[in-house]
């Protein structure tokens, strides 16, 4: 018999698989999209929405909800998938990805239920998240703010303004999760403009740092459950991930950053992903 934790992990892995399937479904419906960075984030999103975040899908504007901001907005297919699976939006919305007048476009739209901020321009989410966290503190509210960052995104200098400000403000109610899949639009981050030594940079900016395997559900939920790591510091989970995770031909390559998804590719991917247990 499975222990409670093992059962939880299995359930979250099934949600993650379903997110990956729904990402492919949305991109297939749209004809193209940002595959790699959506798949690398799937396990973390499953842990956030089905384990960590305190949310009310039937009351998306609940004042005391935890806030999740997808700063790497081009992974919106994965956000839409998890919002549909959690019940914020109708499942049929996933087939409206990129559709005319749809709220479900390439990047998150604050007008869609469950979306906390319109993002897409890179290097915006951490500042916004810090503002949200300070708003919580000023109003004596206990909700938590989590911002998911991309690795290529961290090349934008505005992130480092926000990183400095968050530690200066001792914003322990703010957490960043770096989806460190090592690949950006034109190539590997290490070859374009490296972030290394990434953990040292964040520590130097005054953050509490934890590194995990961003596809190991056990490590992900431990990292989330143990937040904040230091009483008066913002936390960052540096999640080492694989771009395009779960579909062999899309893994660890910039060629699957943003792609066309014709029928034959879609079918090949879905065959690899299989049905959730």
């Amino acid at each position: 018999m499975l222990t409670n934790r093992e059962a939880t992990l299995d359930e979250l892995r099934a949600h993650a698989l379903q997110i990956r399937r729904n990402v492919w479904r949305a991109l297939h419906a749209a004809g193209s999209g940002h595959m790699g960075g959506s798949l690398s984030a799937a396990d973390i999103l499953a842990a956030l929405y089905f384990h960590h975040l305190r949310l009310r899908p039937s009351e998306p504007d609940w004042a005391d909800r935890d806030r999740f901001i997808l700063s790497k907005g081009h992974a919106n297919a994965a956000l839409g998938a998890v919002l549909a699976q959690a019940g914020f939006i109708d499942d049929a919305v996933l087939d409206q990805f990129y559709a005319y007048e749809s709220l479900f476009g390439m990047h998150p739209d604050i007008k869609m239920a469950g979306v906390e901020m319109s993002t897409g321009g890179l290097g915006h989410g951490l500042s916004i998240g810090l503002g949200v966290a300070l708003g919580a503190r000023l109003q004596n509210k206990g909700f938590r703010t989590i911002v998911m960052l991309g690795d290529g995104e961290l090349q934008e200098g505005s992130n480092w303004e926000a990183a400095m400000a968050a530690s200066h403000q001792k914003a322990a109610n703010l957490t960043a999760i770096l989806d460190y899949n090592k690949v950006q639009q034109s190539g590997h981050v290490s070859e374009m403009l490296t972030l290394e030594p990434a953990p040292d940079k964040w520590r130097a900016f005054g953050w509490a740092v934890r590194e995990i395997d961003g596809h190991d559900m056990d490590q992900i939920i431990s990292a989330l459950d143990e937040l904040p790591y230091v009483e008066d510091k913002p936390s960052i989970i540096i999640a080492h991930t694989v771009k395009g995770k779960g579909v062999s031909f899309a893994e660890d390559t910039h060629l699957w950053h943003n792609n066309m998804v014709p029928d034959e590719v879609f079918e090949k991917a879905m065959a690899e992903l299989g049905e959730p247990a």
Partner: peptide, 14 residues
């Protein structure tokens, strides 16, 4: 840049 983003985030909380 950070000041502007923070302002937006604060506004979302009321």
């Amino acid at each position: 840049q950070n000041a502007m983003g923070m302002a937006s985030g604060l506004a979302t909380t009321g």
